[in-house]
Amino acid sequence: MSGSSLDARIIQALSAGQTEIDTEVSLNDLTADAIIRKSDHVILVEVKTGDARFPLPSSTHSQMKQFVAEAREKYQQRIVPVVVTNYRVFPEMKDELEKDGIQVLSVDGSVSEIARQILRADDVEGPAPVSAGPMVV
């Protein structure tokens, strides 16, 4: 899939029929691609697309931790972070992200199926929420 329109199609599929979704949400210095507000939690969606030969940027984990900290401060609810990408995701990176409760969805099907998976993200039992402070190296 071409990276240039994929972002927009994913967000459009996600927005279809959803009333509790905000796109391009400002979180201090960051801008979240989509926030889906549920009664007791918030799904934070970050879409990363481009040339499918390239790997997922290695700074994604750090960026998502910052997103979660900012979103928690704004919404005061449990945050379910989801990365949607057509980049290559190596098992080590996926494990590292999922260890911090960040789900990774690879775009290898239709965008509507991806949207359904995102909306079901809160049904997945993940590890404890990401801590707001910096990790000890």
């Binding site: 290695s58 700074s59 984990h61 750090s62 960026q63 910052q66 910096p134 990790m135 190296v137």
Partner: peptide, 8 residues
Amino acid sequence: RYKASPPA
């Protein structure tokens, strides 16, 4: 990038 959120 990494000051406040260093990688593992």
